[in-house]
Nucleic acid binder design. Structure first.
Lengths: 371, 371
DNA sequence: ATGTAGTGTGAATCAATAA
DNA sequence: TTTATTGATTCACACTACA
């Protein structure tokens, strides 16, 4: 648990360890621009007044720990600004952050993130499939929490594994509302007395989705409010490097024990569906160079309305319009843009075949990449 | 439309009318402590860059109206503070407010509400059953908006019709996430040219739920950003009094016309919130996220002839074939299609168990209504 | 070197309603 | 039955030329 690797060209990072200390001081001690993703579950600043009882008179074990107490909105805002600034310094230019919270704190946190220069990409609703009911019937069942996903700045080229998430969602685009159960059963860590080890342990499924969505294997993930280490456990399983910061010795101990038992999934399983965008670019001219299409050959538009001739340099000419497969397609259709690969077809055995098929042939010949 | 009743012991209110003017000035002209509920749909402060096109090259008709433009966060915050203060003055001591927004503005609005002394009761997620997709595949589908429900102050004895909401929700406590379709079809108001009359018309079902939950018949409901008057229409139907404020003559005109046609207790309108139930769709990836199956684990086909490994994103890999449980099953069997849920099994206690069993477990846990 | 503006290529959609 | 339309959107990126 105390392995500290040194990355090529970067200052030493305490990878795969739990740092003891206050999160702001600990973050300030780490090298700037070294972190790919931050996952933060800061204190919610709950303001509970008295005990809450269930209809059967049993007492609800609520969050009333000292670390969740702030004297005022101003004090909470100051704390929030400070840790968000420290976190932002640590992020690589293309790094990103996730913060989770409830209505008690998330609006203040979100506004502070915008003020600090973070660029919000989505807010995500974690819809709990098994929330605690509102026993008194005075409000709606508080059945969700909110996550904010933001990049370090507007210009950041953040990681988003679109296809992997689409795959996770049975082939349709993943939405901003996620239905996942809260952490219960044997996933919920208990102490010797059988009490829950941490009052707000997050489910691994939530972290799993966050990391599959916005990190790649080998990325460095920091959790400044580590608690019992759910972030670390999922990072380790998924082949990401983690750094945890936690000031309570008790939580650190539970987390250490937990992490020592986690094993990484094998490499093949960690591979994830990638998008076409990541596939090697094939210039249209290559189809001509390779003789898959001949200069002078005629292409037909998908809808059959237009024709164009292939020229030796990989451009098309049709109706006096010359240019790339995309340009000519767009002009003929009067559209702002056009994907020529799927627009143009050629004839083979009397059938219309899109030229994209030829591109796929070339790609298949190219070195088999793991992703 | 210009009936002005005088309530016992209260200054004259322009009940059931649309006030022409800037919302802050108009609110300041109304008597303090006279309003039961405020519903506010303020500008979202969207910051659009250029045009967005669908994959079929059609242009998305985005919200780019002048009323949604602010020069900076500071300008937006000032505006927000001002209208929230004016609104709070109007509320009765036990009055309440609803504000709707998206991630562009809702965090700033929520923080400003807390700073102004409002007491947040719930944040509610309006989960859209038919949102616009993310065409570029660069983020999650933005499939929800957030509402904040708050009382005038912490001590307020706010209205909450617990049993009515429970009845609306088939006998179980209403949760903080509401699934409702966006406003389309004949409910969506159009101008003579057939274009939408307002870019962001809210569905009546949403207002219906808000008013059933937090007002009583005869209550006075104020909407300072009236638009085409959905708040007024629902208030009238449900026997509440409304006051609208709207500065755009065009919207006022559409709203007047609309409201003149609305009749109280229109049965058809009351049925808006009821909808069909379907079996919730469970993506296979959720079994992986939730640890019911692990990446790298082997699945066997029902007939025992094929094997495949589970990957972290919920796809399978077997004999170099990658894809969904359905795709891989179909390929391996040489069949046009295959129901992966009943095709694939895993081993438990030496027995072959179809993965569909795990899906049934998840469905049983889901207490939320799909529609 | 470092940054910015301009240009060329090319990737990308779900659910509901209306026609 | 099939096809067309549409909705609160902070929705690309790599490369070159030039300051």
């Amino acid at each position: 648990m105390t392995t500290t690797k040194t990355k090529k060209g970067a200052a030493a990072l305490p990878l795969n360890t739990i740092v003891d200390g206050d999160c702001i001081e600990a973050m300030n001690a780490l090298p700037a621009g070294s972190i790919d993703l931050i996952f933060a579950d800061p204190p919610y600043n709950l303001q509970l007044k008295g005990d809450l009882h269930r209809p059967d008179n049993s007492r609800v074990d609520a969050v009333d720990d000292a670390w969740d107490q702030f004297s005022s909105f101003a004090a909470y805002d100051r704390f929030t600004q400070d840790w968000l600034a420290a976190a932002r310094r640590l992020l690589k230019p293309n790094g990103a952050i996730w913060v989770i919270g409830s209505y008690h704190n998330i609006f203040r946190v979100g506004a502070a993130m915008q003020n600090a220069g973070y660029w919000i990409l989505n807010d995500v609703v974690w819809r709990k499939s098994n929330p605690m009911p509102n026993f008194r019937g005075k409000r709606l069942t508080n059945a969700h929490e909110t996550l904010i996903w933001a990049s370090k700045e507007e210009a950041s080229k953040y990681t988003f594994n679109y296809e992997a998430l689409k795959a996770l969602n049975e082939g349709v685009q993943m939405r901003s509302d996620w239905v996942l159960p809260i952490c219960t059963g044997h996933e919920r860590l208990k102490n010797e007395a059988g009490e829950k080890a941490h009052p707000t342990q997050k489910p691994m499924s939530l972290l799993h989705r966050v990391m599959v969505a916005t990190t790649n294997p080998g990325d460095v993930v920091l959790d400044p409010f580590f608690g019992t280490g759910t972030t670390g456990a999922v990072a380790k399983m998924l082949g990401r490097e983690y750094i945890g910061i936690e000031r309570e010795a008790n939580y650190r101990e539970v987390a250490e024990k937990r992490l020592s038992k986690v094993r990484k999934f094998d490499k093949e399983a960690l591979q994830v569906t990638t998008s076409k965008r990541a596939e090697p670019r094939v210039p249209f001219g290559q189809l001509v160079e390779r003789g898959m299409l001949n200069p002078g050959e005629e292409l037909l538009s998908m809808n059959g309305r237009h024709k164009a001739k292939v020229r030796a340099d990989g451009t098309l000419i049709g109706d006096d319009i010359k240019g790339s497969i995309h340009q000519v397609g767009a002009k003929l259709e009067g559209a702002p843009s056009c994907n020529g690969w799927t627009y143009w077809c050629f004839k083979r055995d009397g059938k219309m075949v899109p030229i994209d098929l030829l591109r796929q042939q070339i790609r298949a010949e190219m070195t088999d990449r793991p992703n």
